[in-house]
Each structure stands twice: as C-alpha cells, then as structure tokens.
Design a protein around this nucleic acid. Sequence first.
DNA 1: TGGGACAATTTGGGCGTCAATGGGATTAAG
DNA 2: CTTAATCCCATTGACGCCCAAATTGTCCCA
Lengths: 149, 149
Amino acid sequence: MFCVMSRFLSNATNRVDAKGRVSVPATFRAVLSSQAIEELYCFQDFHYPAINIGGPELLARFERRLEDLDPFSLEANRMSLLIHGGGIFMRLDSEGRLMVSDFIRTYTGIEGEVTFAGRADYFQLWRPDAFQAAQNAAREELGRSGPRS
Amino acid sequence: MFCVMSRFLSNATNRVDAKGRVSVPATFRAVLSSQAIEELYCFQDFHYPAINIGGPELLARFERRLEDLDPFSLEANRMSLLIHGGGIFMRLDSEGRLMVSDFIRTYTGIEGEVTFAGRADYFQLWRPDAFQAAQNAAREELGRSGPRS
DNA sequence: TGGGACAATTTGGGCGTCAATGGGATTAAG
DNA sequence: CTTAATCCCATTGACGCCCAAATTGTCCCA
C-alpha cells in the first residue's frame, strides 16, 4: 500500500518506551526510504513548539533562503542561529525508531507520547495535546477567513 | 438513472460494525471510481462537526492557495498544519468500507451510525442526529432571510 | 397493483500480515 | 568500568483481504 506519492501527510501518535525511543510511523519511513534519506536533519519550528525533521535537502533549502537575506540583518542572524546552531542530525535505529533526546523533549514538552505530523516535505514531532490545541486554533483562524468555497 | 453525474449528492446513513467499519454508499463509491480516486483525503470541516472526504484534488486545491503565501510566514505554517498535518489519507477496503478511526470519532461524535452527506466535490461524515439538527437549522436560517414568505 | 424472483448492497467474521512495542544482549562511548 | 546507544528477537494488536449471510432495492409478470 504505497500511500501517497512521496510526501509526508496526515498524523499519528506513538508511545515513547522506557528507553526513550519512539517508532516513526511506517508511512513516513516509506517516504524516507523512497527518497533514500538516511540522515535526518532536525530543528525547532519557527512558530510552534515542534521539531521539524526532513532530509539534508531541507537544510539546503533554508540555506538558500538565508542567502537572500542581508547577512548582517537580525533576521539572518536569528535564522542561522536556529538552523545551524539549533539543528542536529539523527538516524533511525534498525527498527525505524528514533531517540527522544533532551533537545526534543525540552523544546516540545514531549513526555510519554509523540504526535507525528506530516508537512509535505518534512514531518514534525509534537506533544499530542499541544498539537491538538494548535490545530484547533489554526482551524478557527482559517475558518474565520473562510477557506470554504 | 439520472443520478450518474459525477458529483456527490443526497445522503444515507449506515451502521458501524463491531470492528469499527462502515460501508460507503454505493452511489458515492461510483463517483469515486468514475474519477479513478483511490486515495481519500479527509479533514475536519471548518464550521461543522463533520469530516470532509474527497480525492487528492481536494488537497491540491488547498495547496494552490498555500503557494500564494510566504513559506516562512505564520500564515503558511498554520495552513500547512491543518491541510497536511490535520488531513488523513485513507483507502477503502475491498468491500468499499472505511474505518471509523478516533480521528473521525472524536471530532464528529459518531458512535453506532454514520450519515454520509454529498457535497458535490466531496462528501461528509456526520453523526446522524447532528446532521438532522444542522439541516433543520440551515433550513430555518434560509427560510428566514430568503425564499419563503 | 401486488407479488415474487433476482441482483446489488450492506453487514458480519475468520485469518494472515505487518507495524508498533517491550526487553534482553551486544557494542560503543566517556 | 560504568553508562548509554544500538541491534536483535519475541509478543501483541491493528488492519487489510477474503468469503459468506442478511438485507435492501429493482424489475418483470401475472
């Protein structure tokens, strides 16, 4: 069942085990392997308390964006601080699990469970209740301006 | 038959079985297969406690809207959170049934029965009594400001 | 107009497969 | 030498696939 052409979509929440590991949903792993992604680039989301994870290409895209900015601007400085200083590389274990490090835990507030949320080119790690809350807020914002046609 | 146009019309309510499955009405399945839709894109309605279901084209429509935004803005982040992270992809089983997951159950309040409501390009899942109530309310609203009297 | 047979849907379960999870063993790191 | 990360295997449970029963709807003919 090749769910969807190589993009991260939908969401799922899995449990963190006693060793601090959590399974990445099989659908997401399928996307990773279809793009031959071994090294995962992780960094903090700019707006939400979530960790973004994607392939090295994701970092490259940010760097391209960075080049468009005035290198001495506060915005460029801030961005580099996040994507270079704040980013880390990870890989999955043989079972397709990742370690929930302190880096992840403190920024997201994750404890016993992790919600994986697809974002097309990358996916996110959320604390489940934070994810729900953010979604409800977003839906309300969008509903107000009326996306329904 | 006169109802063969490729649009989702009218409504029907079916029972959820012990495994949490429910048959999609044959008329809706006919529309899906006439458009060769295999993957179903599902998301929460912005105004009502209902789940909207359509083909990938439905997602594409939202993404087109996303492209008009600055990809690093809060606005874009919020929209992606909903349409990518908030949407679920599903497929029907070999009998044309779908699973009533927690995602669907909690947002709609569905328990033993599901009302399928056609919405032209997509269809909806409702809790039967909520559907009746919403219809009555809508009818009353329209009557007050509109066609009758 | 009212059966009644036939066809299509809807519904109910059994079963196999695969993903998620847990725990012990092995290896790397400090 | 101690601790932590990784690997490997076993268990569990969910989901997809198949087949069968029951229900509903449709059409034809008396």
